[in-house]
């Protein structure tokens, strides 16, 4: 059976793929394509965050009693990433591709260092603490992150 770490890590890579498509379109000056691709990427990231904040983190917090621990920091970073996503959408709406590419660069590093902490530290902790309910948690995560 797959692990929470493997499933959520795959979803991170899926988001990376969508990010690359959007950034490349903006880099080529195809702003309409970039808007569509970035919308797709943003939707996938927000679905991923929602899955974590409504399913994974509460399960982890309930099991470990760590409400102020790693999940609090991850939620704060989600907020920072949401703000970058909104700024990027604004830059694309204003057809300011230089501003968009600058935000995209920062967004990528922010996202990657966030993912690294989740993949190397938080998800393994989730797999450890939620081993007996992993099937149920994974089924809900699959629904939460599914493309509409």
């Amino acid at each position: 059976m797959t692990t929470i770490r493997a499933f959520m890590t795959d979803d991170h890579r899926h988001c990376d793929d969508l990010f690359a498509d959007a950034e490349q379109a903006a880099g080529k000056g195809q702003l309409d394509v970039a808007r569509a691709e970035f919308g797709h990427f943003r939707q996938a990231v927000l679905a991923h965050f929602a899955a974590e904040e409504s399913t994974l983190f509460p399960a982890f917090e309930a099991r470990t009693g760590m409400a102020m621990g790693p999940t609090r920091v991850m939620r704060m970073e989600h907020e920072q990433i949401r703000a970058l996503l909104a700024d990027a959408v604004d830059a694309l709406a204003a057809a300011d591709s230089e501003e968009f590419l600058g935000i995209a660069e920062t967004l990528l590093i922010m996202m990657q260092q966030h993912n690294m902490k989740e993949e190397n530290i938080l998800y393994p902790m989730c797999d450890e603490h939620l081993a007996d309910v992993a099937g149920e948690v994974l089924a809900r995560l699959e629904v939460d992150t599914a493309e509409p």
Binding site: A83, L84, D87, A91, E99, G102, I103, E105, T106, L107, I109
Partner: peptide, 10 residues
């Protein structure tokens, strides 16, 4: 905050 790191060093 500023919108991106490129505002600090381009």
């Amino acid at each position: 905050g500023v919108s991106s790191a490129s505002r600090i060093l381009a």
